[in-house]
Design a protein around this nucleic acid. Structure first.
Lengths: 196, 196, 196, 196
DNA sequence: TATGAATGAGTATTCATTCAT
DNA sequence: GATGAATGAATACTCATTCAT
């Protein structure tokens, strides 16, 4: 039989991330993804049930890794909430540094999937937000963070801001030093814009 | 008759905002928009060249009004940068309060249009960002805002965060008091999360 | 607007009967039917929801007419069961004489639709069989027909035989005089093959 | 090894009869047949050229056996035409009793193959009809059967009726005693429905 | 202007068949 | 021979856009 050369599923996955990033989910053709992966169109369906399951798999793995990463951090007892917040930001940044196209797909397509309740995207995103909210709550409780901030709204503010800065960076990864993005983000979350 | 024409274009515009908000741009059908506007499908094309021009017009008018609103504010000499920042936020909020569906379309569809360089969306968004950046710069210059913040990145952070909080609010306008959203936003931009 | 010229639904219906007869349902392409009907492919979907609904409509109308025809006959009190049987046969024959292609579709495709329980085909066919069975029962009751015949099986025998003779005729309508088919059918149903 | 090959071909054959009976020829997948036969998909093509050749082989063997069976009967000089007719019916019945799924395939798929002139199906069916016709002719000639029956049409009537009764029986073999089917068939062919 | 029937390009998906191992 | 992964041709259906009335 013809044996699997390399990992075709991964090739399709990678090609799909690229094509979804370039054209958007709705304008991406399966045939283009197959071409990019170096296989025949029909072979895509040996590894994925349909077009949607490809993007759902992308988000599934994305959140799986991010959640795994931050779960370790938030469980640590030797870090205060501010350090945990910094660590969460680092995890997300590090993840997307390794794949700008994935960052693009993430910022562009997630809300469609959540809006229509497809797959586990909404659930995983909620888990992420809940973890972040817990860190914020802890910070408020121990007096580190201000009581004037509604943490359940703040988490949306931060993720939205984070996403938009990532989009900016992903649209042209070489133009903006990612560390500058990261430092700006950490600073403004903690101190806001006012001079201290 | 001019009045009638004006009414029909507006009817299509309003119907399109509703339908785009409900189904998303790609899943919205011209025939649905026409139905909602109370006209025949073909009549849509008497007022708009094609589907895309409808959403481009939506964003054009959106930004036109927002930019008109904040331009007045930033030109004033009796306001300091922090007050101007607050006023910009108020302008955006007030605009979307009057039309939650428009807020939904804004947060969900803008990036597709910018990404593909359609219409003037990117240009107008840039103008908005530039205005905001100038206010921030002025604040840094006169010592009100911190020098640790990269203002050209910060503006992306703020708009992303603003957009995401609006999405949250627009998804269920009655669940979250908009003033709480507004106050949280203003506070965290100025002070960050740290207790002062 | 472009008004309907002629009856497009009927044109599609007629074209579908032809194409289904020539190629069989599974090998018939919507585009071929549209071509034959002199319209664009997409226009087919203005009149029918999908391919299957076309053939279901064909059978619906077929049985509707046949059932309407024989219902009148069996309700008459001035005919004995044998005369009613003859009349039922005439109705079916007359119906298919007017459209050999329809006869072909009928004999070739009905069982697939019944087997998969699509539409009302099975129900209408059952109604037909029930009507025929009632006539047979009446004949047995009044001593005209033999008690040695299981009428609920006999009706299947007759319809199968009828269908096969029609198939033969429809495959080459000019080769066999239909009246000879009709007379043979009537005779053997009544007398069997034995010399009387 | 011949034996092994023979077993596999038979396994495919048997699996195909089952699957064709369950799903119909067009909806039957080669992969399903291979699964059912306990072999790999590709191995099917070591024994059959393509999907169609499988069903053609099914009909080939079916008719081969039926024709072999009835040929013996019709050659006998100690039987009159009525006895020969009964014997032909018995041969067909006995053949299908041993394999209801084969009966289902026979009644459902034969006409597609004949219609398109595939394989030898039409020829073998014609041979069968000719043999039956000869028996009928002999009966007419020696005064046993009626001259009012067109024997070349009657044979179509009988085979169609036979097929339809078999379909009925095959759809639910336990519901109808096959001997009742057989007796009804023999009776009506000989005597028709009229009380004698 | 206004209509809405008609158009036809565009694409996800299936599955019989092939072939490298 | 046997495998089953890989192939890619084939096609129903959608919907933005057009245009005859």
């Amino acid at each position: 039989m013809r044996t699997k050369e390399g990992n075709k599923e991964q090739a399709i996955f990678d090609a799909a991330v690229e094509v979804f990033a370039e054209r958007g989910y709705h304008n991406a053709k399966i045939s283009t993804i197959a071409d990019r992966a170096g296989i025949a169109t029909g072979s895509v369906y040996l590894y994925f049930n349909n077009k949607e399951s490809i993007i759902l798999t992308i988000f599934d793995r994305l959140w799986e890794r991010v959640l795994a990463g931050i779960s370790v951090t938030v469980a640590r007892t030797d870090l205060d909430p501010q350090q945990k917040l910094n660590s969460i930001i680092d995890t997300v940044f590090d993840f997307f540094i390794s794949n700008p196209a994935l960052a693009t797909v993430f910022v562009n397509e997630q809300h469609h999937l959540i809006k229509d309740g497809r797959g586990n995207v909404a659930e995983q995103y909620d888990r992420f937000l809940d973890i972040a909210e817990k860190v914020l709550h802890d910070g408020v409780k121990n007096g580190l963070f201000s009581k004037n901030v509604d943490v359940s709204l703040f988490r949306h503010f931060v993720t939205g801001g984070l996403r938009n800065m990532l989009r900016q960076w992903a649209s042209n990864p070489t133009a903006i030093p990612l560390d500058r993005v990261r430092q700006t983000l950490k600073y403004v979350i903690i101190h806001g814009i006012l001079r201290t």
